[in-house]
């Protein structure tokens, strides 16, 4: 893309085509959501009930939060595949703090998030210092952290009343207040808060500006005196922090720590972030777009379930949506 290419002048007809294509590319996500809503509403009347709308929003909350973190890693032209594992780790940690060690809620949350940030530190080390390409580095981290979380929980789930790994009986329970976090409306508020904060951070602070500059042209960024490695590191920290938050909310929702609880969130998060980057013609990863992308995935999933499509077939459709989102990102790019 660096060569100076003179784009061929589009003839009037293809110009119209091109405009239509651009419009579809920019607003396709929104159009798709509206179309899906209409189709599902006709097919299943209960779909449009208020309680179902709330249900959809609740169901996408955790995905959205994790996806927004992933979005931040995409802004620097990186890719954090380890978000699912980071969520799993936070999930196992918080439940163990409550159940095994009966620690107070504030301390538990803080400590779990802090420990999850070690994932980011490790990612940043591999990517910035060892210079492994982002995708491969975080792929390795993904497996390592998955293993760490499983080893920590002794290869099984953790729930109230279970003894510690060394056999010590425990009396801890998940606090009531903590369980509240994942109930409506709180979880929706948390999601919207995260989206709003990250939106402000990316679009209205100097740090966000620098993240995009680093992602757009790392060499030009470096030669402008921007500390590029610092900003790449920051991106992975935000990503892990939000993945950790997603893991905590998952613990609050389920009330126990399951094996690889966060793994299933990676794919929809990637889909949401990529669908979102074309939102409103921004052409770059952005928080609000990611929320919209997550909505699309959520509406699709919810509607299909209501139409009695078996859960085990959903991945076919979700995967196809991801392929479509990627197509819209890459197909329109100049060669």
């Amino acid at each position: 893309m660096n060569e100076v290419t003179v784009p061929p002048k589009p003839a009037a007809k293809t110009g119209g085509m091109r405009q239509a294509l651009t419009f579809i590319n920019n607003w396709g996500t929104v159009i798709a959501i509206i179309l899906l809503v209409i189709i599902f509403a006709v097919a299943v009347p209960q779909f449009l009930m208020g309680s179902n709308i709330i249900n959809i929003l609740r169901s996408i909350s955790i995905v959205t939060i994790i996806a927004v973190g992933l979005t931040v890693s995409l802004t620097i032209n990186g890719f954090d595949l380890s978000v699912g594992s980071a969520a799993t780790l936070a999930n196992a940690l918080i439940v163990s703090f409550f159940v095994w060690y009966s620690m107070p809620m504030g301390v538990s949350i803080g400590l779990a998030l802090l420990l999850t940030l070690l994932v980011a530190a490790f990612n940043a080390f591999l990517i910035v210092k060892v210079k492994i390409p982002d995708l491969f580095a975080t792929l390795a981290t993904m497996f390592i952290i998955e293993g760490v979380a499983m080893t920590y929980s002794g290869g099984g789930s953790i729930s109230a009343g279970m003894p510690r790994l060394d056999g010590t009986p425990t009396v801890g329970v998940i606090p009531e207040a903590f369980s509240k976090l994942s109930q409506t409306p709180w979880i929706i508020f948390i999601m919207l808060g995260v989206v709003a904060l990250v939106h402000l951070f990316l679009n209205h602070t100097k740090h966000g500006r620098y993240l995009y500059v680093v992602g757009g042209n790392i060499e030009a960024a470096r030669l402008s005196g921007i500390p590029v490695n610092r900003y790449r590191t920051i991106a992975y920290f935000v990503s892990a922090l939000l993945a950790g938050l997603g893991g905590l909310l998952l613990a609050s929702q389920v009330g126990s720590a399951q094996i690889n609880a966060g793994a299933g969130y990676l794919m929809p998060a990637v889909a949401a972030a990529f669908i979102g980057s074309s939102f409103a013609g921004q052409g770059k990863p952005n928080a609000i777009g990611t929320l919209v992308g997550a909505c699309l995935v959520g509406v699709l999933e919810n509607g299909l379930v209501m139409m009695s499509v078996p859960y085990y077939s959903l991945n076919i459709i979700k995967g196809a949506v991801l392929a479509l989102a990627l197509a819209s990102t890459y197909y329109t790019r100049r060669k």
Partner: peptide, 17 residues
């Protein structure tokens, strides 16, 4: 490749440093 951010507007280029 190194001097400007081609996809960004002029003002973001000018204030980048």
């Amino acid at each position: 490749k190194e001097g400007i951010l081609v996809d960004e507007p002029i003002y973001k280029n000018m204030t980048a440093a």
